Computed example of a mutant assay.
Amino acid sequence: MKELEDKLASLGLSPEQSHQAIQAVVDFIKSKVPSEYQGMVDEVMAGNMPDLGALGGLMGGLKGLFGGKE
């Protein structure tokens, strides 16, 4: 997450703007997945890798987008 915040800061966003932008993306992703998987999005954003079963590849890719390691 810190890596993404740093990247946004390098584009000229304030820390508050960076946080708002990240939260908007997280909210958008959560609105597109079934409710039972929304907690997994929170886990990935917290830097954790939950047991994703069949969704492992998809969520792992999302984690990579936000600076996490698969």
Score class of each variant (00 low, 15 high):
G56N: 09
G61H: 10
D6K: 06
M1D: 12
M1L: 13
S31P: 11
K63T: 00
D27K: 04
F28A: 07
A9Y: 09
V41A: 00
P15Q: 02
M45D: 03
L13N: 11
G68F: 05
D51E: 14
M40H: 12
E43Y: 07
S35H: 08
F66A: 10
V25S: 07
S31W: 08
Q17I: 08
D6F: 06
K7Y: 12
F66I: 06
V26T: 10
D42M: 05
M49R: 11
I29W: 08
G53C: 03
H19L: 10
E36C: 01
M49K: 12
V25N: 00
L13F: 11
M59L: 15
G60D: 06
F66D: 00
M40V: 02
G47Y: 04
L65N: 09
F66G: 02
K69F: 02
L55S: 08
E43N: 02
G61D: 09
G61T: 08
L65C: 06
M49I: 05
L58N: 05
F28N: 10
L4M: 14
L58E: 09
V26F: 04
L4N: 05
G61C: 02
V33Q: 01
E36M: 10
M1S: 14
G64T: 12
D6I: 09
L62D: 06
Q38I: 09
P15L: 11
Q20M: 13
Q17P: 00
M59D: 00
G68K: 01
D42K: 07
G68D: 07
S31G: 15
H19T: 15
E43C: 03
K63D: 01
S35V: 14
D27R: 03
I22N: 02
L11S: 05
G53D: 02
D42Q: 03
G61Y: 06
M49N: 07
G68Y: 01
N48T: 06
E36Q: 15
G60T: 13
E70A: 13
K30N: 06
G12E: 03
L62C: 01
D42R: 13
Q20T: 13
E70I: 03
K32W: 06
G12K: 13
L62M: 15
Q38F: 10
Q20P: 01
Y37A: 14
S31R: 11
N48R: 15
S35P: 00
G56Q: 14
V44E: 01
G56H: 10
G67M: 04
S35L: 08
G39N: 04
A9E: 06
E5W: 01
G57E: 12
H19I: 07
G57V: 11
G64P: 00
S14E: 07
P34F: 01
L52R: 05
D27A: 10
L65S: 12
M49G: 03
L4R: 03
I29R: 06
A46Q: 15
K7W: 11
M59H: 04
A24E: 14
K30C: 03
G64M: 13
D27G: 01
L52Y: 01
H19S: 15
L58A: 14
K32L: 12
E16W: 04
L65I: 04
Q17R: 14
E36H: 15
D27P: 00
S35F: 07
D51M: 08
D51F: 11
